[in-house]
Simulated assay, not measured.
Amino acid sequence: MKKISIVYWSGTGNTEVMAQAISKGAQDNSEVKLVKVEDANKEDILDADAVAIGCPSMGAEELESEYMEPFIASFENIDLNGKPMILFGSYDWGDGQWMKEWDERMKDYGANILQEGLITHLSPEDEDIHKCEEIGKKLSNI
């Protein structure tokens, strides 16, 4: 059975809703670990067969600085060796530049980014939840 890790940070709950929907989509075919980034460790990423990482846009379209940024930065000198990965998160304003930069950053760290990061404006709507569930299915069928 595939091991899927979903690591996320959520301030308002929007990104957490997305993480839960990804988990739901992956549960039928995989062992899913859903963990808040403040409780995560590198092994949650390195030991998984596929990974989803979620964080909303903060400030000037940046990752959350207290937990998510240091967690992501900890992989800078670790080759992720083609780890299948999809990024996700919500935003209030901007055009999603933080997600584009995050996708590129994780590619630079060696991740195999399976699709453009999924972003939702504020609270995920039904269509967004469906897209999240599809991400879960995609990760579990790699």
Rank of each mutant, 00 (worst) to 15 (best):
N14S: 12
D47W: 02
H121L: 13
N41V: 13
L114G: 00
G54Q: 06
I4M: 04
M58Y: 15
G89H: 09
V17F: 11
G59H: 05
A111T: 04
Y91I: 05
K24P: 07
G13R: 13
A19I: 09
I4Y: 06
K137Q: 13
E64Y: 08
E116V: 04
D95G: 13
D44T: 04
N112M: 02
L122Q: 15
C132A: 15
F75E: 02
E62F: 07
G13H: 12
A111F: 01
K107V: 05
E76L: 04
I86Y: 03
G13Y: 13
G89D: 10
I22E: 11
L122E: 15
W102T: 12
E64H: 12
M85T: 14
H130L: 11
T12F: 14
N14V: 14
V51A: 10
M106G: 00
Q97T: 06
M58V: 12
I113A: 00
M1Q: 03
D103V: 03
L34Q: 03
D47E: 10
K2T: 09
L122P: 06
D103Y: 03
S123H: 15
E76G: 00
S23Y: 07
Y109G: 01
A26T: 09
I45H: 02
G82R: 08
E69K: 14
A21H: 12
P124K: 14
M1N: 01
V37Q: 08
I53V: 13
